[in-house]
Amino acid sequence: MLRIEKGALGLIPYLMAGHPDRDRSRAAARSLAALPIAALELGIPFSDPLADGPVIQRAGQQALDGGMTVADCLELAADVAGRAPVIFMSYINPILAYGPERFAADAEAAGVAGVIVPDLPPEESGSVSAAFKAHRLASIFLVAPTSSEERIKLICAASSGFVYCVTLTGITGARAELPPDVGELLGRVRARTRLPIAAGFGISRPEHLGTLRGAADAAVVGSAVVHELAEGRDPARLVRELLAACR
């Protein structure tokens, strides 16, 4: 079960499965899972990640170069899912190639709580979402700053678990500041759903979390955490610092 409560600000750190290599990826996932995080988001590497900036692109390529497969990602998820809730982030093609039904069944067996597919809008999600639902996986869709009111309604209705609010018009990657209108966007989503709301993209610093407190129920931190690992540091240090700023 996801540990996202409305009213508090939870933290969802992201790791690319298999980055920088299998052993260090597993060690990092275990060390983050031991912290009081809302969930751990595990990226499944893909050769052509359209929504990702350079840090996650490089991490994914490194994971693929190390031979990481979807089956390996499922195995890693199973290893940490007992310690913290795990959410997958995967582009649609690896899921299609694995088979959506088989993927959903194996993810459920691994103890995964939900799946984010950044290139699968609700309109294209029919059979994939049905498979997720049948295997009790949350289908987490994304709202973007460019989404119309009509689309926000559609996305909130299609989502389960939580709604993922993309804070900026762009790709993943740490930014110095969050856009000034992020609160307004979160408010528009809040008005459309009773589900918890997570904010993501660009969030990297403790002061960003202050901005989000009260407006979002969780914050996803991706590139900044992956960058720590890429630089050979233990990402738990940054995550502890961010957790302190959530309170």
Partner: peptide
């Protein structure tokens, strides 16, 4: 189809 990030849908 339209398999794109939500940012591009509108």
């Amino acid at each position: 189809g339209q398999y794109v990030p939500e940012t591009l849908m509108s």
